[in-house]
Design a protein around this nucleic acid. Structure first.
Lengths: 242, 242
DNA sequence: TATTATAATATGTACATACATTACTATGGA
DNA sequence: TCCATAGTAATGTATGTACATATTATAATA
């Protein structure tokens, strides 16, 4: 059998089923509207109950990767290919998909006192220093994002870690923090002198401004992130479902 | 009892439970980190099985409105207040929440032949006319969005319907089409003459440009929507989870 | 006092089962 | 030929049950 599940593994069956379905989704065979095996059959093949399988399928339907249709079956959604919970690709991964090689060619880490807004968001006092990270990304001589991130003290970054690795990887592997929720606000602004200088563009040019609040699995504040994206050269994609 | 479920209603119990939970989420009482009643207890109170209740809770956890914590219970997520599957609020609802009264003060409906891109997206031929809808929204003398929407022929709008009602309501009630997925691309651009005129702003001012592809529950193309939001005066919010 | 078991309480995982609903398919009669 | 009807194949809804696991509070012990 092409796909199977390990009943002795400590990984929950429905999680294994979910991962397995993700593989199926990436499988060429199922890309062109071909339905995946029906629930009853697939459950039997994997030797798990239909209920358990359904739990996994539900999650992917929620993410918009699978589409159910009564009597017909369940198929891979239109354009689900490279999706994989799209919002959560890190910046560098995102860019890689678009065939752009990205470098952090300016990275600046400092410890600062938070202002009112920050202290309030993190629920800490203003005399507690936090880590501030600034990054300019893009190709040298052609930057297109300027990022500023502030991290909650509980993340306990030293400032010396290797920030060339994706940030979410560092958090997951080294700090066991899994970011699960983010709230974002996006608007268009005109570049002021500071930003224009960072992005090597003219003052007044259109900039996509994104504020992102990142929370962990227990809904605790992790990161406060501001991004200034050079207009035109950057497209932000969102996928939402209900 | 404050909340209850109607077992005779044709509405599925888990859907009723979900709606009920949404009410609980909006309830002041549960806003400040207070846990909602535990699953076993709540299921007993509502006279439904724990499994069914869990189905409803899961959905809201997915949406990021509820947070589970073993031994502690399930609580309303940080800042879930006005969320309610945020992405899917219609424009006017969204604005209402922010205390802004919105009017469609310019509405223009025509039938046009699709260009290559559109025909390709809708999977129709270029000689098949489709409905084009243009809207300027905001307060009179202070517009802040210019929308262009194209609809797939299967939506069978006549062009004479009352577009003062929210669009998704029209689709759901009158056409039994439920939009379930949208893909969006957002970027910042400088207003050209046409847009500047529509939004009563200067040429070159920053504009948030949003392209939105809307699909129905069966993953079929429904709407192709372009939005030009006046910079600064509009903030686009996104909530994502994994 | 400090440390270590233990109990209690909530969610987490998993199964078997039954019947409902939907939408397509085939069949049979007018 | 056409239409009504029954069949059937998939997902949808719902329950009852059992045990696992994580976390906190409390009690027992060193």
């Amino acid at each position: 059998m092409k796909y199977s599940i390990d009943h002795k593994s400590p990984v929950p069956l429905h999680v294994q089923a979910e991962m397995l379905l993700r593989k199926i989704i990436e499988d060429e065979e199922y890309q062109n509207g071909k339905t995946i095996p029906n629930e009853v059959e697939l459950a039997k093949q994997l030797a798990i109950s239909r209920t358990t399988l359904r739990q996994a399928i539900n999650k992917l339907v929620f993410e918009g990767l699978l589409v159910r249709k009564k009597r017909f079956g369940t198929k891979v959604a239109n354009g689900a290919v490279s999706s994989r919970s799209n919002n959560w690709l890190s910046f560098s991964q995102e860019m890689k998909l678009r065939g752009v090689t990205i470098k952090n060619f300016e990275l600046h880490v400092t410890w600062v006192y938070p202002d009112e807004t920050l202290a309030n968001f993190f629920e800490i006092k203003t005399d507690r220093k936090i880590l501030k990270m600034e990054r300019v990304r893009g190709k040298p001589h052609e930057p297109f994002v300027y990022f500023v991130s502030y991290f909650h003290p509980r993340v306990s970054l030293t400032g010396d870690e290797d920030f060339k690795r994706p940030l979410y990887e560092i958090l997951e592997n080294d700090h066991s923090i899994i970011a699960t929720l983010s709230k974002e606000e996006i608007t268009a602004i005109a570049a002021d002198e500071f930003i224009a200088n960072k992005l090597k563009m003219e003052v007044g040019s259109p900039v996509l401004f994104r504020k992102r609040l990142v929370f962990d699995q227990a809904d605790r504040q992790i990161e406060y992130n501001l991004g200034y994206y050079k207009g035109d050269s950057f497209v932000y994609t969102v996928e939402s479902s209900r």
